[in-house]
């Protein structure tokens, strides 16, 4: 074990951690902004409306994130027209490419979670809202979305952890995130085991923090469920079970 190489490079790891966290939080925010309309439209019972959002979800959940990132980073460089367009200052930076890839990817998964949650809305709630004369928009805003968000929370917690883990791919396209830092340490000192275990430990800590955060969040949002539904209470605060394919 070469502990000295790791200790000497701890600042590099912490810097990497900062990049990882900024990438993940950026992607989650942009992803959510995209996911809400996409998930909503995908849940509407009209093929003309759901076709496009569902195709988007299928495309991004059906291919590896690594391939999506390669297409956005290396793929866009193939076209001269794109290289001379106004988009290039953004696409030129590896950081923005990774952020775009992550945001588009997590948007698809989040939209799928939302769609499922919206479609599970208990019909009685909608009927009740109609009977007091709410408009369609109000029903969405006051009834469907709030309860869907609540139902989607555990699955979304999973997605956040998967996004954190997926962000390790940024290290592949020259970004020095947590994983990128591990790669640099490995290649300088030839200590693959130590360098990657260290990165793994950092990721593990962040994962536990996220799990803990969602536990608190769910406690708040699911307070009304606590005494009755012991199953849901048990689910709280666990690592992800599986990602929706």
């Amino acid at each position: 074990m070469d502990v000295a190489a790791i200790i000497d490079n701890l600042p590099l790891y912490f810097k990497g951690l900062g990049i990882t966290l900024s990438l993940v939080s950026g992607a989650l925010v942009c992803g959510m902004v995209l996911a809400i309309p996409i998930g909503l439209l995908a849940s509407v019972r009209n093929p003309l409306i759901w076709a496009l959002p569902k195709a988007y979800i299928y495309l991004f959940t059906g291919t590896p994130l690594l391939v999506q990132m390669y297409i956005i980073y290396y793929g866009t460089g193939q076209f001269e027209a794109l290289r001379e367009s106004f988009l290039w200052p953004v696409l030129k930076e590896a950081y923005w490419c990774a952020l775009i890839a992550f945001a588009l990817n997590t948007a698809a998964y989040t939209a799928e979670i939302l769609r499922g949650a919206i479609e599970q809305t208990y019909y009685g709630e909608i009927e009740a809202a109609r009977s007091v004369g709410m408009s369609k928009a109000t029903i969405y805003r006051r009834i469907i979305l709030p309860s869907a968000f609540r139902r989607a929370l555990p699955a979304y917690g999973n997605e956040v952890i998967f996004m954190l883990h997926g962000s390790a791919l940024a290290g592949i396209i020259t970004i020095v995130d947590l994983f990128g830092a591990a790669r640099i340490v490995n290649s300088r000192y030839f200590v693959p085991f130590e360098s990657f275990i260290t990165a793994g430990f950092f990721y593990l800590c962040v994962t536990f923090l996220i799990v803990w955060g969602f536990k608190l969040w769910e406690k708040r949002w699911h307070a009304h469920l606590r005494p009755r539904d012991t199953d849901a209470a048990q689910k709280v605060g666990k690592l992800p079970v599986s990602k929706p394919g």
Binding site: H165, A168, L169, A182, P192, F193, I197, G200, Y203, L239
Partner: peptide, 23 residues
């Protein structure tokens, strides 16, 4: 087993097992 593997990125696990495993 399940906590460690699901708590870190699969990519990291792959690198650790691939290099560490051979050793």
């Amino acid at each position: 087993y399940t906590t460690v593997i699901r708590g870190e990125p699969n990519l990291v696990t792959i690198f650790v097992i691939f290099y560490g495993g051979q050793i």
